[in-house]
Every structure is written in structure tokens, then in C-alpha cells.
Design a protein around this nucleic acid. Structure first.
Length: 263
DNA sequence: ATGCCATCCCGCGGATGA
């Protein structure tokens, strides 16, 4: 069957629960929404989604980070942390939806905390690579979607939107992303739109959105069989223009019906 | 120019974000 799923760094779900609910109501084809930076613990997650019939799974923590899944279909949670990422920070939750495994991730920014902070970012990339290998070896179709906090190439950020030494541009950050591609994953946006500016984040400061001074940092990486089913990747840029928006916008992946195997 | 803006915390300014 076809499958549509999405990712949105919401920058506090308690502040923007109504925006998410409105978005879900206008995007009925979206089966699963992956959220990052919910910035609360599970018991603080707004109840309106479950009250409206959605299935909700939360890996939360106080004040910072936190990821969640909001689904129209029942989910099986496989893990609420990324194996091999040695941290208590809530940055990963993974679920099975039919025959597809979805990993929802919030990668460390890497600009704070000095060398240890940047090492944490690289550690997450390394753990994600090993998670990909494990899922591949288990024969699973999977997608890693979320806020990767990396601009993969110079085409993925507006001139002067970041300082040249920013952790989002660091060669080792980009190498971590490329290593996932080399393991066989497909960058869904670049598969369909090989060139051009396709930003997913605009800073709150200095009129970045009005100047289109953005970044492409929210990505979906697809395993080979899912990449074969990819039909569209859309960036819901209009959400950035709403009242009190997140600084990120939703990205939506559509997959066609799986082909049945012959012989 | 490392601020501009926005979130969180049992706040009264600081850490974090990217």
C-alpha cells in the first residue's frame, strides 16, 4: 500500500499543539508525523491528539530535545533511543508501520559544549550508521527522518546564513551524512530535486524567512526498496509564515504502493 | 556584529538553538 509520512521540528509541542493539529487536519493523507524538539516529558505532551483518535508515542525529557510520533495507524515501537548513542538525551524513537521501520531523529547541533558537544554529534552519526547496517542486515525497509542538523552541501544553505566554521557545515558532519548515503541510503529530496535551493529552516532573527536566508537540515533517508517507491518529497514552506511558527517547516515523503515480488 | 528571536527553567538572567 502507499504510505505518506512527515517530519517537523516543532520547537515546543506545548506552544504549538494547535498548529500541529491544524496541519494534521489539512493533511489527512499523512499517516505518521515525526516531531522533534517537543521540549517536554511524556506526561506533559498535549492530550488533544489522543483525544482525537491519534496514536502517540513519546521519548521526552524536561526542557530540551524530545521526539514523538503521532500516527493515524497503530504503531509498534521498536526502541525509544538510538543504540550506541551514549547519552540520556531524548533524540530518537523508532517504530514499525506495516512492513516499514521509521526512525525519527533529532541529531545534536554540535555548536555548544565545546569538543565534547561536537563529539556527541559525530557519535550520533556513527550510531545511526550502525543502526542502518543492523536494519539492512535484518532485511527491513526503513527510513531515517528528522532534523539532521547538517547542510550536506554548500547548496543547502543561503549565503551568510551560517558562519563558515559552524558545526552544521563541518566536514566531519558532512562526512557523517555521506557515510549514510554510501551505505546505500537515498536522500529523498535530492533524488527528486538534484539541484536548487530547498530550505526547511529559517532563523527567527533578522528577517531570515523574508530574505529566504534558510537552511536544508531536515532530511529523509530511504533504504533501497523504499527509494524505489518514492513519488514525492514536499517542503511545507507556508507553515513558516503562520503566526508564532516553529523555525522549521514540515517535510512530507510519499511512497507508492509496494510492488509484489514475482517468483 | 555572535545580537538580531524564541524556547525552557520553580526564572527574575542564562543556556540552547543553528
Amino acid at each position: 500500500m502507499s504510505l505518506t509520512f512527515a517530519s517537523w521540528n516543532i520547537n515546543s509541542i506545548r506552544t504549538r499543539a494547535h498548529l500541529v493539529k491544524d496541519w494534521l487536519d489539512r493533511n489527512e493523507a499523512c499517516t505518521l508525523l515525526c516531531l522533534q524538539e517537543i521540549k517536554c516529558e511524556a506526561h506533559q505532551f498535549p492530550p488533544l491528539f489522543e483525544e482525537a483518535g491519534f496514536h502517540v508515542a513519546v521519548a521526552g525529557q524536561k526542557a530540551y530535545n524530545g521526539v514523538a510520533l503521532i500516527s493515524r495507524a497503530p504503531l509498534t515501537i521498536t526502541t525509544d533511543h538510538l543504540p550506541g548513542f551514549e547519552s540520556d538525551e531524548a533524540r530518537y524513537i523508532e517504530a514499525e508501520l506495516d512492513d516499514v521501520t521509521i526512525g525519527n531523529l533529532y541529531l545534536p547541533n554540535g555548536n555548544s559544549g565545546g569538543e565534547a558537544g561536537f563529539a556527541k554529534k559525530l557519535n550520533f552519526f556513527d550510531a545511526l550508521y550502525h543502526r542502518a547496517r543492523a536494519l539492512q542486515q535484518g532485511g527491513r525497509s526503513f527510513a531515517f527522518i528528522g532534523d539532521y542538523n547538517v547542510c550536506p552541501t554548500d547548496e543547502d544553505y543561503a549565503p551568510k546564513a551560517l558562519s563558515p566554521d559552524d558545526a552544521l557545515l563541518h566536514p566531519e558532519s558532512r562526512a557523517g551524512f555521506r557515510r549514510l548515503l554510501w551505505s546505500g541510503l537515498t536522500d529523498a529530496l535530492r533524488c527528486l530535486h538534484p539541484t536548487g535551493q530547498h530550505y526547511t529552516f529559517w532563523d527567527y532573527q533578522a528577517g531570515a524567512y523574508q530574505r529566504n536566508s534558510g537552511l536544508r537540515i531536515d532530511h529523509a533517508l530511504l533504504s533501497p526498496r523504499l527509494a524505489d517507491r518514492l513519488t514525492s518529497f514536499t517542503i511545507d514552506k507556508d507553515e513558516r509564515g503562520r503566526d508564532k511558527p516553529s523555525d522549521h517547516v514540515p517535510v512530507v515523503v510519499k511512497l507508492d504502493t509496494a510492488q509484489s515480488s514475482h517468483e
